[in-house]
Nucleic acid binder design. Sequence first.
DNA 1: TCTGGGGTCCTAGGACCC
DNA 2: TCTGGGGTCCTAGGACCC
Length: 421
Amino acid sequence: MSKESGEITPGRRETLVPAKRILLVDCDMFYVQVARLEDPDGVGKEEYLLVGGSPTGRGVVTSASYSVRAFGVRSGMPTAQALQLCPQAKVAPVSRRACAARSRNVRDTLVDLSPVVQAASIDEFYLDLSGTERLFHQESQPETAKRIREEVLKRTEISVSVGGGTRKLIAKLAAGRAKPAGVHVVPPGAEAGFMRTFSLREIPGVGPALAETLEARGLVTVDDILPVERIWLDEWLGPSRGRWLWERVRGLDSSRVNSEDERKSVSSERTFNTDLTDDRALELKLLGLVGSVGGTLRRKGLRGRTITVKIRDGDFKTRQASHTLPDPVESDRTIHSVARNLLMELRKRRRTSVRLLGVGISSLVEGEGPPQLELFHTGSSSESERDRVVSRVMDDIRSRFGHEVILPGSMLGGAQGKADE
DNA sequence: TCTGGGGTCCTAGGACCC
DNA sequence: TCTGGGGTCCTAGGACCC
């Protein structure tokens, strides 16, 4: 395993502040693991296991077992294509609920083990262990990483890989080197050398588009770009992105591990098995999406001001329209009345077959304040206390009897005249 | 073999205000 | 009466991540 770390380092003269000790805990092929744990006697037994999409539909691979990856299957690949490459693979659906629950387990365990934990995604968690040396009896960072890995496995049955370093960027890249089911810690002072082992495309934040721009200048690896002066990167990429890349290739990353980042938006979207052309059919789908977004919003105790409708046409062209209300809202009726208008606008601009429809809400604030005084609040776009109560009663009924019990339209329809004013 | 669903962040232009 | 400059909000689109 990796060398020792954590001692005084010859490489960093300038620091008076002790180097940060950051870990990234990354679940190994998370969705595959969850699928196996949830159905140990069925699909969980399959060596060639692929999670996500349906064999016939339009889905893509969310995660694949290593045996399947050996055939060239990657996440994000259309499931149909993956099955061409690896016909013996069995496809399991993604269980969102199970994955969310397992993710919560892992996070709760980490919160017990580390003072600062940030959930970066459903299967990735940053830990900041700076200042815990005494607490952990001078345990080295690789030892800590190993102990955490084992503790998470014991408590949650989830196998993780752990990367470590002095910055999030380093920890993240190190976690890649730790996979599968291992630990990799980059000692303080070794960051720049570590970065030189990567290609530019491997740096988080460098996607296909930026990689192509750089490649056009003959820049493929970190080593290629190190001799390039900052002014040229600014010139080619703009000052903001230029500076960002200049820092990244040197292993610099000032972002902090932040345990309290609030969510900025809630959305729901659906790709149809076959494209839809009929406006009535689209409106029906819109209703379901609004219910999903509104339900999540209320469950989280949030309200939002900006409503966005997104369409992907049959030719994969993606368009969106949004509208911002003066006051934050949470009821299905209000969200729907805005979303419906936006959908009609989008359809008016371009009326072709629709592959995907989505609804989102942003500009979020904590909801559940004191009831608003309707007296001062009579604009047509504003939401009444009655709207909110109706939505919450619906949530309650759905949570008890399932989503299919009441057609949301029956209640929305009743209030519609009011929405249109 | 066509391309999921949940997010975040950035950019750029126009409106509007001082 | 010939036109500045900065700040903020809104909208649309795009890149990127898991």
